[in-house]
Each structure stands twice: as structure tokens, then as C-alpha cells.
């Protein structure tokens, strides 16, 4: 029953975060619409749950978001899932504590990995003539805003959600469950 309840909560969270991400993209003015709410959620899930389940959540979320993208199916799904997997490993083996700057740094690294893989795939499709390559200046500007704002929002949200409770979260050993 607990498992069922947990699955239902995760399922609803996936749908919710997809909707929030699409709404953020459509509603907020530039550059605030560049906040990647998916990664804010994934980093939060990773920090609080410390479970490899985050990779499969990333997979589900990016599958849904893929349905709203013009790029060939698979680019967002692959880059989003693999970058979450790599971020999970970074958290598992590199980060040693939990704080607002850990959240911000992890979020920044996750977006850097995500956009690096995305751009590599973009270039791959460009070579085969599927895509016209946007000017690098425009691309880097958008990426820059996304990295800055997403890591800022993640760090701030972590600070706001953990501060009121005035207690340090105990860092549990992370198990490999992917």
C-alpha cells in the first residue's frame, strides 16, 4: 500500500512538473521563462530522496516534454535522462554535504551536462541536414540564462524550504538503485 501510494505521488508529481515547466515557458517573460523547472524538481528530489529513482522520473518527465518539442524525438529524452544519471553520480561520489550552494551547484552542473549533450545531438542532426544551426551567440545566451536562473532558483528554493525547520538534514549513504 505504501508502495502504491508512493508511486501515485511520484506519478502525479511527474505530470505536475511537466505542466509547471510548460506553463513557466509560456507564461513568464524572458529571460525568466528560461528557468528549467524540470531540473529544479529533479535536483530537489535527488537531494531529499537520495535515490536513483530520479533517473526514471527524469525519463518520464522528458518523454512527456518531448511531445511538445519540434526537434526530432529522442533529443530531449536522451539528454535529459543521461544528464540526470550523471548528476546522480556526481551527487553520489563528489558532493559531500547538503546546503543551498550544493543544490545550486548540482543544478548548474546538471544543466551544463544536459545542454552539452543536447547541443552535441543538435549538431549531429545538423550534419545530416535536419536542422539549421542557430547562431552560437543566441544559443549561448539562452543557455547562460537557463543555467544562471535555474541554479539560482534551486539554491533559493532549497534555502527557503530547509531554513524554517532549523535542523540540519542528516546525509544518508546513497545506495545505487537505478
Amino acid at each position: 500500500m505504501t508502495w502504491l501510494k508512493r508511486t501515485a505521488i511520484v506519478g502525479l508529481s511527474v505530470v505536475g512538473v511537466v505542466f509547471v515547466h510548460l506553463a513557466t515557458n509560456a507564461v513568464l517573460p524572458a529571460p525568466w521563462n528560461q528557468v528549467n523547472m524540470v531540473f529544479v524538481f529533479l535536483i530537489f528530489f535527488l537531494l531529499f530522496e537520495e535515490s536513483g529513482t530520479v533517473v526514471w522520473i527524469a525519463f518520464s518527465v522528458h518523454f512527456f516534454i518531448e511531445l511538445y518539442a519540434v526537434s526530432p524525438f529522442g533529443i530531449l529524452l536522451f539528454s535529459g535522462t543521461i544528464s540526470t544519471l550523471l548528476s546522480f553520480w556526481l551527487y553520489q561520489y563528489f558532493f559531500t554535504n547538503q546546503s543551498w550552494y550544493t543544490a545550486a551547484a548540482l543544478s548548474l552542473l546538471a544543466i551544463v551536462i544536459y545542454r552539452s549533450i543536447y547541443t552535441a545531438l543538435f549538431l549531429f542532426f545538423h550534419v545530416f541536414g535536419y536542422f539549421a544551426l542557430p547562431p552560437w551567440s543566441a544559443l549561448l545566451l539562452v543557455y547562460g540564462w537557463e543555467m544562471l536562473l535555474t541554479s539560482g532558483v534551486t539554491g533559493l528554493a532549497y534555502l527557503l524550504t530547509t531554513r524554517p525547520f532549523h535542523k540540519k538534514r542528516k546525509l544518508l549513504p546513497v545506495e545505487w538503485r537505478v
Binding site: 510548460l22 509560456a26 516534454i65 519540434v70 542557430p134 544559443l139 537557463e146
Partner: peptide, 8 residues
Amino acid sequence: GQDVEPVG
């Protein structure tokens, strides 16, 4: 809705 691509 609108696209979620960064430069689209």
C-alpha cells in the same frame, strides 16, 4: 501551447 526548445 508553445515549444520548449531554447531557441525556437
